[in-house]
Computed example of a mutant assay.
Amino acid sequence: MIRREWLLGVGLISGGLGVGLASSAPAWAQNASAIGTVAAVKPDAFGAAPGAAEQTLVIGAGLVENETIRTTADGTANVIFADRSTLTVGKGSQVVLDKFVYDPATGNGGLALDLAQGALRFVGGKLSKGGNVAVKTPTATMTVRGGIALFYFPPGGGDGYAVFLYGQELKNETTGESIFRPGFAFKFPADGGPPVLIKITDEELANILKNFNTESGFAGRFPDQDLALLENNPDLINDLRKQIEEQTQTNNPALESLRQFIATNAIPDTNPYPSSS
Rank of each mutant, 00 (worst) to 15 (best):
T139D: 13
T139N: 14
A140P: 00
A140Q: 05
M142C: 06
M142V: 04
V144L: 14
V144D: 05
R145H: 02
G146A: 06
L150P: 06
F151G: 02
Y152M: 05
Y152W: 11
Y152L: 06
Y152V: 04
F153D: 09
P154Q: 09
P154I: 07
P155M: 06
G156E: 09
G158N: 11
G158K: 10
D159L: 05
D159Y: 05
D159T: 03
D159H: 03
V163E: 06
F164L: 05
F164I: 01
F164N: 03
L165C: 08
G167P: 00
Q168P: 00
Q168D: 09
Q168K: 08
Q168I: 07
L170H: 04
L170E: 01
N172K: 11
N172I: 07
E173N: 12
T175A: 06
T175S: 10
E177S: 10
E177F: 08
S178H: 02
I179V: 14
F180A: 14
R181V: 15
P182M: 12
F188Q: 03
P189A: 03
A190I: 05
P194F: 01
I198V: 15
I200Q: 06
I200A: 12
E204P: 01
L205R: 14
L205M: 14
L205Q: 11
N207V: 04
N207D: 07
L209P: 01
L209Y: 05
K210R: 14
K210S: 10
N213C: 12
N213P: 08
T214M: 14
E215V: 06
E215P: 00
F218R: 11
F218C: 00
A219K: 11
G220M: 04
F222P: 00
D224W: 08
D224F: 10
Q225Y: 15
A228D: 14
A228L: 15
N232I: 01
N233Y: 13
N233W: 12
N233V: 03
L240I: 15
L240N: 05
K242R: 15
K242E: 15
Q243I: 07
